[in-house]
Nucleic acid binder design. Sequence first.
DNA 1: GCATATTATTGGCGTATTGCCACTTAATTG
DNA 2: CAATTAAGTGGCAATACGCCAATAATATGC
Lengths: 245, 245
Amino acid sequence: MFTSEKEYLKHYNIHDYDVPLVSVDIAIFTLLDGKLHILLVERADFPQKGRWSLPGGFINQQQDKDLHATALRKLTEKTGVKTPHLEQVATIGNAKRDPRGWSVTALYMGLIPYAPTADFIETVADARWWPYEVAIKQNLAFDHIELVTQARERLRVKSGYTVLPVYVLNAPFTLTQLQQAFEELLGTEIEKKSFRRRIQAADLLEEVGEGLPEGGRGRIAALYRPKKGSEQHAFIRAFGGSEED
Amino acid sequence: MFTSEKEYLKHYNIHDYDVPLVSVDIAIFTLLDGKLHILLVERADFPQKGRWSLPGGFINQQQDKDLHATALRKLTEKTGVKTPHLEQVATIGNAKRDPRGWSVTALYMGLIPYAPTADFIETVADARWWPYEVAIKQNLAFDHIELVTQARERLRVKSGYTVLPVYVLNAPFTLTQLQQAFEELLGTEIEKKSFRRRIQAADLLEEVGEGLPEGGRGRIAALYRPKKGSEQHAFIRAFGGSEED
DNA sequence: GCATATTATTGGCGTATTGCCACTTAATTG
DNA sequence: CAATTAAGTGGCAATACGCCAATAATATGC
């Protein structure tokens, strides 16, 4: 049909094809008053006007060099927050999730220390931190309840074998604060000594003096911050023993 | 602008927007002669005609109820194989990966016991199992070398803490065969006793008699197959201790 | 039939890791 | 200065892991 790649590309037109919608949605979590919160926006326009949803939106082919950039841009535009950790969770695509037609969305999950949302926001009616347990009882837009649940599950599982929870704390923090963050994100209690042993063995934190957490009582505590490059450390040994050291 | 959701949807037309390409690519691995192999197809048409790539393609909005279905359909159409395990690895989207424009692809990874590819295949020139190390030295189409590498990495990591490798074996198999599968997929040797202890503790296999593997010598071995529902078991304890039993 | 080679399976032990709980230390509060 | 609060440590039993060797069960060569 075509004689060369060049020839083929000259005649290629995406509008000849039946393409799905493609969007990005971002589930951002933080800790506020010791409780897990999630950032939602209220939709200002159709479809699903007035309902709460994850921040997200469409790719801008001129502005975004890749999907990750789309996620960061949409998050900032719609909520005013910036995240130190953002990872892809999954991509959900099917015929029914959006009334406009076959739709694909790339779901991202991020963690940040608590920060207020921006006052003036384009294209959304409101942006607000919701306690997680309250958020999932809302009648969220589209299939966002499932997206939220998937992101929460990723957060829970990954908190079991990485230091992800450090991203919801402002450094410096005490080990007890860190343990409480782990416990809230994991949804389970951790034994103090086991926790400290594992954190110490991982060698991911550096001490930066001592102090009391705000409003704290009792003995003064050592303060820590994450070491550079501690991002991807996994605690747990897989088959074959440790590669390090 | 619009007064109701219905009104809005009536006027919505996806062709008014600048949408990216959306595709699915599938990295299928197996074990052949003890070595990791990957299934590639030779492109019969432009773009990238004549180069080898992962099997994949575009969503068919009529046929496919979701992305997973797209992956399964494309795999069967292009290679004739069916996979007992298929999981999403990541979604890659950027402006440069496809000469036709901004492109998003959902990458899947699958594992199967060795099975020959189909003889007659539409839309591809050829479909063939390649030894992994040979495959990655090919000049693959698009950014498929990166996709292949990502899928391989997922396979390696997940083989360290799940029973994923059982999916490259035909049941029944011996523990030694299973260990060799683990070792090839992990890229490292495992101590025999440790391996057996962990597999037994996981309680994921059921014994189905004894026998010798094909061409085997020496003592007769116990034969196993995966128990139903063993799919998602993780070996390793995360924080907080075991939930089970 | 019998020694030899080959592979499967189990035993055992020293060491590392984990769960558990109590104890000590250091600050604040009244 | 005693009581309270919270940080940090000690220690031990139970479990898990790495390592190596012993034993068991089969085929093969003579």
